[in-house]
Computed example of a mutant assay.
Amino acid sequence: MNIRKAQTSDYDEIWELFSEVIKTEDSYVFKKTTPKKDLKKHWFAPYMETYVIEGNGKILGTYIIKPNQIGLGKHIANCSYMVHPNTQGKGVGKKLCEHSINVAQKESYKGIQFNIVVSTNKAAIALWKKFGFKIIGTTPNGYKHSTLGYVDTYIMFKQL
């Protein structure tokens, strides 16, 4: 598996992955009806860096890294990760997380914060905890899960 910066030529393949992940409405805030044109502002905005991980000639996952806030809060990074459902459980998320931590350190971020981790996304929470992220806050009923209704969300943080 190889991780590299995303290119404009990856747009359609990232959209295919993105749309597969959001269609379950169980881990991301995007509605399954999010139009393809919105991918640019959610995954390719000028203030973020987008990476992909490839294997066997296909994009298996992707992540973005950006400042969590503007101005005096820009020293903390924010990341979002997506792994194609067909490749979940094969170490793709782990490699993306490792890579993002390295990128954040190289770019002199002081920490990484995840603003909304759905409490029912047990696999992601366990992975983030393995990398030293801690739950630092809970938003009661912060997410409208497609099958479970309102569930809590977590804010997770890792000091760098």
Rank of each mutant, 00 (worst) to 15 (best):
H75Q: 04
F18D: 03
T87V: 00
K23V: 06
K32A: 15
E49A: 04
G111Y: 03
T138P: 00
K58N: 07
A126C: 02
G55S: 13
G61W: 00
Q69G: 08
T139G: 04
Y109M: 05
M82A: 15
L127H: 01
Q105W: 02
D12F: 00
I22T: 08
G132L: 02
H84T: 02
V92M: 07
Q113H: 03
D26R: 14
S108G: 03
K74H: 14
I125P: 03
P140L: 02
P67K: 08
K5L: 15
E16G: 01
P140H: 00
T138Q: 09
K37C: 05
G142A: 05
T34G: 01
N86H: 06
N86S: 15
Y11L: 12
V92A: 14
K41C: 05
W43I: 08
I112F: 07
Y63R: 07
P46I: 04
K90A: 09
K36C: 13
I70M: 12
E20F: 08
F30M: 12
F44K: 06
A77Y: 06
Y63P: 14
I22N: 03
Y28H: 12
R4F: 15
H42K: 00
A6E: 06
K110V: 03
S100Q: 08
D10W: 03
I101Q: 07
K41D: 12
S146K: 15
K129Y: 00
A45T: 00
N121D: 14
E98F: 02
E98G: 08
L17H: 02
F114I: 15
E25Q: 15
P140R: 12
L127P: 03
I22V: 13
G142Q: 04
E49P: 03
S19P: 04
D12A: 09
P67S: 14
V21R: 13
G73L: 12
I53G: 11
T120N: 03
Q113C: 10
K134C: 03
G132T: 03
V118F: 08
V83E: 07
P67V: 08
T33G: 14
G55Q: 13
S27E: 13
Y11R: 13
M48W: 05
A126L: 12
T62M: 11
K40Q: 15
S119K: 04
H145F: 05
T24V: 12
F133S: 04
L72T: 05
P46R: 10
L96Q: 09
G111S: 02
L127A: 06
V118S: 01
W128V: 01
S27K: 09
E20H: 13
Y47T: 04
Y63M: 12
S80F: 03
K58W: 00
G55E: 13
I135C: 11
H42I: 04
L127I: 07
I22K: 07
Y47N: 15
E13A: 07
D38R: 14
S80C: 06
V103H: 06
G93F: 07
C97Q: 15
A6T: 13
F114M: 10
N115M: 04
I70H: 10
S146T: 06
Q7H: 11
I112S: 08
V29L: 14
M82P: 12
S119T: 02
T34H: 04
T120Q: 06
Q113P: 02
K37F: 01
K110P: 01
M48A: 12
T62G: 04
T8P: 00
T87M: 10
K95H: 09
T50P: 08
N56F: 05
I70N: 11
L60M: 14
M82E: 14
T138V: 15
